[in-house]
């Protein structure tokens, strides 16, 4: 029902995704003009494609929880916990010398284990939100600490390394010149888009986010929907954990700690309504691209790493201010004024 979104009554140019597309193109063009030989080089383009998927996948996890009006602050914790467990399997059971079919088999076991950990962690979050009635922000703040804590306790806080070579395939190889992490991100993004727009589940997710009480009265199985949302977020986080592990060739409890805020930032920048009820994957993808063009272009221009953080934050605030009128409308929409 993609053609029936609540914003289709607006013209294309008013859609937040359209604005984002313009921003993405402008940023790309600007960087290409400022540093044509290096920004447009094949090497830079590939390196960008290797860099962003890990946090972009986390942003997808954030997107689906935010669409319900919730949030998942445990994504990085889940990613690291699942990576640490996968790493334990890869180092202690497979070992760095493993090759060929044995290595592939252990990698498969490790991947399944990490996905299972992600799903279990998400299920735990879902239970906290549905059965205990905790606000998602608190539930996942607490559970995020618990997941990270388990990873710390298992590793004593140090990095786990010594994987079979095959592990680097996930994060560092290409298929027909396309980096594997990018393929993973693309597959997950398309899957999430289809899930949100073409399935009953996805529509229920959005509707619940728009008005939880009305969802209850419409006999939507809210608990099951929310459980599945957090399980999906957990599994996406686990995939991100695998990419991080493979690229770093190790797993550690505190990898990617800056990714949490980045994931929230990208989701909001991508037009996802943090109060729930609206979120489109295309917007999130455009937000990710804008951020990556911007940060790697700035790298080319010898701008320090820290300036990226500054610019990301400024971009978020700018987009929010531009959208202010929209927000006011959305918020008013949730609390309709009483008219006599």
């Amino acid at each position: 029902m993609s053609g029936s979104g609540s914003r289709t009554e607006m013209t294309l140019s008013q859609a937040p995704e359209f604005r984002l597309a313009i921003i993405a193109v402008l940023v790309f063009a600007l960087m290409a003009v400022l540093s044509p030989d290096r920004f447009l080089s094949a090497q830079n383009l590939t390196s960008m494609a290797f860099q962003f998927p890990e946090f972009a996948i986390l942003a997808l996890a954030m997107t689906i929880t935010m669409t319900t009006g919730g949030i998942d602050l445990s994504v990085v914790g889940v990613a690291n916990l699942s990576a640490v467990i996968a790493a334990a399997i890869l180092t202690s059971l497979a070992g760095p010398e493993a090759t060929g079919i044995v290595a592939v088999m252990w990698l498969a076991v490790a991947l399944v284990a990490s996905l299972a950990v992600g799903a279990a962690a998400g299920f735990f979050n879902g239970i906290l939100v549905t059965r205990l009635g905790l606000p998602p922000i608190l539930a996942t703040l607490g559970s995020g600490l618990v997941f990270t804590g388990f990873a710390v306790a298992m590793t004593g806080g140090s990095a786990v390394m010594g994987f079979p070579d095959i592990v680097s395939v996930i994060g560092n190889s290409t298929i027909w010149f396309v980096p594997v992490p990018l393929i993973l991100f693309a597959v997950l993004a398309i899957a999430l888009h289809i899930l949100l727009t073409r399935t009953g589940f996805g529509l229920r997710v959005t509707m619940y986010g728009a008005n939880p009480l009305a969802a209850l009265y419409a006999a939507i199985d809210i608990d099951r929907i929310l459980l599945r949302v957090y399980v999906i977020a957990g599994m996406f986080s686990a995939v991100a954990g695998m990419v991080i592990m493979s690229r770093a060739n190790s797993a550690k409890a505190d990898y990617g700690s800056s990714y949490l805020l980045l994931a929230v930032l990208i989701a909001v920048l991508g037009g996802v309504n943090p109060y729930g009820g609206y979120g489109r994957v295309i917007g999130v993808v455009l937000a990710v691209l804008s951020m990556q063009f911007l940060s790697s272009g700035l790298n080319m221009l010898q701008v320090s790493n820290f300036a990226r953080e500054l610019i990301w934050g400024a971009l978020l605030l700018l987009v929010m201010v531009i959208n202010t009128t929209n927000w006011a409308g959305l918020r008013a929409g949730r609390k309709p004024a009483k008219t006599g």
Partner: peptide
Amino acid sequence: VTLGTLSVFRG
């Protein structure tokens, strides 16, 4: 907002 300013201030 504070998420944004966290990045901005630190950056």
